[in-house]
């Protein structure tokens, strides 16, 4: 009798210990699972933001390239020289008068007077021999070199400018490289067209990449979307938290990509002399705002359509996506 009672108590004790161990194990498992799920969610959020950031950073770089290309093309155009040869009889007051009237024109950015002697010196330096002594006189004329504003450095404007300048009595001849002007303008147009196609393609690729990233993030919640729908949540109610999250991700990514972009441009300006990327702060600020706008709009559209897709999918079909 006593043995049977003891046996019963022993079994009861073992059973209690076993249950305690089971609960403990379940508790540890649950904590571990929760940690893993939490880590996965964090990783997925960080991956999404990082992907969108990188794509927006590339878009920002494209924007900077477009801005910088414009600066570069203006720089090339404004360095095209328009040489006005003067009659030997032209006196200094007349020459100064010509320079002043040229500089008053919209088309002209700057002028430079080169005297006969200065021209001879420069040519002698280039040739390496004293041609004045050889010839017995200086055959070169004095000249005014005009550099034009980028907006006027095209064949049509130059032809008009040439006509106006030639009418001055002290001007003997006007010379500029017509072919070079044409070539520069043609090349800039060609590069501009290429940039436009490249930009369109890049924006499309960027949108597709962001869209894909967001779709993947929504895909992982397709069952949640369906569950909410089944218990009677309206489409807008289900969509709202996803859109909020998408906009937040887009905004965060745009801010990070803008910080990266500014750091990159600052480093580039310091390392490469002659680059003045921070000269036009208004344009740069506009570019940074465009990046934020793109981040928000692409994220919003992508989230909207990704959620809509799973709202319209049947429960059974969720497994085949």
């Amino acid at each position: 009798m006593a043995v049977s009672f003891l046996q019963e108590k022993c079994i009861e004790f073992i059973h209690t210990v076993f249950l305690l161990l089971l609960h403990l194990q379940q508790g540890i498992m649950t904590n571990r699972e929760e940690k893993i799920i939490g880590r996965r969610l964090k990783t997925s959020y960080i991956t999404t933001v990082a992907s969108i950031t990188l794509v927006l950073f590339v878009l920002g770089l494209l924007g900077v390239t477009i801005l910088f290309t414009r600066q570069l093309s203006d720089h090339v155009k404004e360095n095209i020289e328009f040489t006005i040869f003067l009659h030997n009889s032209a006196g200094l007051p007349e020459i100064t008068g010509l320079q002043q009237s040229l500089e008053a024109m919209d088309a002209v950015k700057s002028t430079e007077y080169i005297s006969k002697e200065q021209a001879a010196e420069e040519l002698m330096e280039e040739l390496g021999e004293d041609f004045v002594e050889f010839l017995g006189y200086n055959p070169l004329s004095s000249a005014v070199i005009a550099r034009l504003n980028a907006s006027h450095a095209n064949p049509d404007s130059l032809a008009v400018f040439e006509e106006v300048v030639s009418k001055n009595s002290i001007v003997a001849e006007v010379d500029y490289q017509k072919d070079l002007v044409q070539l520069v303008n043609d090349n800039i147009r060609r590069i501009g067209f290429g940039m436009l196609i490249f930009s369109t393609l890049l924006v499309m690729i960027a949108s597709a990449l962001i869209n894909n990233t967001i779709r993947l993030s929504v895909f992982s919640k397709r069952f949640l979307i369906k569950s909410m729908q089944l218990v009677g949540a309206t489409q807008s109610f289900i969509r709202k938290p996803f859109i909020k999250k998408g906009l937040l991700q887009g905004f965060l990514s745009a801010i990070i990509s803008n910080i990266l972009l500014v750091i990159f441009l600052y480093t580039l300006e310091r390392k490469v002399p002659g680059l003045f990327l921070f000269d036009d702060l208004t344009l740069l600020s506009a570019l940074l705002l465009i990046v934020i706008f793109l981040g928000l709009i692409i994220s919003w559209i992508s989230t909207y359509f990704a959620v809509r897709k799973y709202l319209n999918v049947k429960t059974d079909s969720l497994y085949y996506y």
Binding site: I37, F223, L224, K226, S227, Q229, L230, V231, G232, A233, T234, Q235, S236, F237, T315
Partner: peptide, 23 residues
């Protein structure tokens, strides 16, 4: 859609093979 959601909420209870619970 919105009225159908309301009907689902008030008039219909779903039980699925896959439970469809929020994890």
């Amino acid at each position: 859609d919105n009225e159908l959601a309301e009907i689902r909420n008030r008039e219909i209870g779903f039980v699925f093979q896959t439970f469809n619970l929020l994890p």
